[in-house]
C-alpha cells in the first residue's frame, strides 16, 4: 500500500470541491482499503466522507430516500424498508458478513469494484485496471465471469467482468434512482443507467464522473404493489459473492401477471434487466411456462467462456425458481 494523505469533510460541497483525479472518497472503506492493499488503487489523498450528514432514511411522498452514507446493516434493519421494500433488505443481508455490512455504505456498495481475480492482481493484464493491457480472465479462470453484455472485440478493450453487488441487483428491480452532486450541480440517474456495460471503456464501471459524489438513493413507490424475492446462488451458505442471483418483483391478479421486474446478478458488468421482456410478460398467465420463456429471453445471446457455461442454465433455473417462489407465496 502506498502512503497517502487523509482529510475528513463534514459538508458534501467540501467533498466535491476538494476532489481531484488522484484522490478518492472513502466511506466504509471495506472495498477501497482492500484495493489499496493490493495496489489496485494508489490514491494520493483520501477524502473521508463517512461523517457527511447523509445517513438518514426518510419517507417521502414518492417513496423512500436513503442517504448515501447509511450503513448497509442499518438500511436492512429499517422498519420502513422492511415493510415497503423487503427486496432491498433481503439483498443487503445476503451480502458479505455482519461486520462488513456494519461498515459498508449505500454509496460504497453502488461503487464496489468487480471481484475478477485478474483485476485484483496488479501483476496480471487487465483492461479495466490498466486500459489496453489485455484481459487475463479470457483464457484464464473465468468461472465467476459474465455471460451477457461482455466486451469481446479488440484485445485491448475486452472485459468479461461482473458487477458483484447483491444490493445493486435489488435496486435495479426496484427502479431506484441515484442522486448525485458535482461541480456542475446535481443530477438524478436511474440505477439501470448508472452501471454500464464495458464496451470500449471497461475501465469505467458507472456513468459517475470522478468528481461527483453520490448523495442518496430514491426508491419510488411501485405503481402496482406486488411481492418480491431475492434469490442468491453462491458457493457457500454465507459470506460469498453470488454466482448468479435474481431480484424479482411480481404482481399477479387472477392468475395473470400485472407487473413484473426481473434483474439478474453475477452474469454481466451490471445488473441485467431487459425491460421489453418484462413488458411482454404483462397479461400472461403466471405459470412456469411463462417464466421459462422469459428466462430464455433474458439470457438469449449469452456468450459463455471455458468455466462459466453452466451459468446459462443456472440463470434460467434461478429466474424460474424466483418467480415461482413469489407467485406461490
Amino acid at each position: 500500500m502506498k502512503s497517502f494523505d487523509y482529510v475528513a469533510v463534514t459538508k458534501p460541497a467540501d467533498a466535491v470541491r476538494l476532489m481531484e483525479p488522484q484522490f478518492r472518497f472513502i466511506a466504509g472503506g471495506t472495498n477501497l482499503v482492500d484495493l489499496m492493499k493490493y495496489e489496485i488503487e494508489r490514491p494520493d489523498r483520501l477524502i473521508d466522507i463517512s461523517r457527511l450528514p447523509l445517513d438518514r432514511i426518510e419517507t417521502t411522498d414518492a417513496g423512500i430516500r436513503i442517504g448515501a452514507l447509511a450503513r448497509n446493516s442499518d438500511v436492512a434493519a429499517d422498519p420502513a424498508i422492511t415493510r415497503q421494500f423487503p427486496l432491498l433488505a433481503e439483498a443487503l443481508l445476503a451480502g458479505a458478513s455482519p461486520q462488513l455490512r456494519n461498515m459498508a455504505t449505500m454509496g460504497g456498495n453502488l461503487m464496489q469494484r468487480t471481484r475478477c481475480y485478474y483485476f485484483y492482481d496488479a501483476t496480471q493484464p487487465c483492461n479495466k485496471r490498466e486500459p489496453g493491457s489485455g484481459c487475463g480472465a479470457i483464457g484464464g479462470f473465468n468461472r465467476i465471469h459474465a455471460i451477457l453484455g461482455t466486451s469481446e472485440g479488440a484485445a485491448k478493450t475486452q472485459c468479461i467482468a461482473t458487477n458483484p453487488s447483491d444490493m445493486n441487483v435489488a435496486l435495479s428491480a426496484l427502479d431506484a434512482i441515484v442522486q448525485v452532486t458535482g461541480p456542475k450541480g446535481t443530477r438524478a440517474i436511474p440505477v439501470i443507467d448508472f452501471h454500464r456495460l464495458p464496451g470500449d471503456t471497461p475501465e469505467r464501471d458507472t456513468v459517475l464522473e470522478a468528481n461527483e459524489l453520490i448523495t442518496g438513493l430514491d426508491l419510488p413507490k411501485p405503481a402496482i404493489p406486488g411481492k418480491s424475492y431475492y434469490l442468491k446462488v453462491r458457493d457457500r451458505a454465507s459470506y460469498a459473492f453470488a454466482v448468479v442471483s435474481v431480484a424479482t418483483r411480481l404482481a399477479v391478479e387472477n392468475g395473470r401477471i400485472q407487473d413484473v421486474r426481473i434483474a439478474l446478478g453475477g452474469v454481466a458488468h451490471k445488473p441485467w434487466r431487459i425491460v421489453e421482456v418484462e413488458k411482454n410478460m404483462v397479461g400472461k398467465a403466471a405459470t412456469e411456462e411463462t417464466f421459462r420463456a422469459a428466462a430464455q429471453q433474458l439470457v438469449a445471446g449469452a456468450k459463455p467462456h471455458e468455466h462459466n457455461a453452466f451459468k446459462v442454465q443456472l440463470a434460467q433455473s434461478a429466474i424460474v425458481r424466483a418467480l415461482q417462489t413469489v407467485a406461490t407465496s
Binding site: 471481484r115 481475480y117 492482481d121 479462470f141 451458505a237 459470506y239 460469498a240
Partner: peptide, 23 residues
C-alpha cells in the same frame, strides 16, 4: 493456479473458500 503463469489467482480468504458456520 493459472497454468499460463503459475500464479495463484485466489490467494485470499474471500475467494479461497472454506466453510462458514452456515455451511
Amino acid at each position: 493456479i493459472d497454468p499460463r503463469t503459475g500464479r495463484v489467482m485466489n490467494p485470499n480468504l474471500a475467494e479461497y473458500h472454506v466453510p462458514v458456520n452456515a455451511d
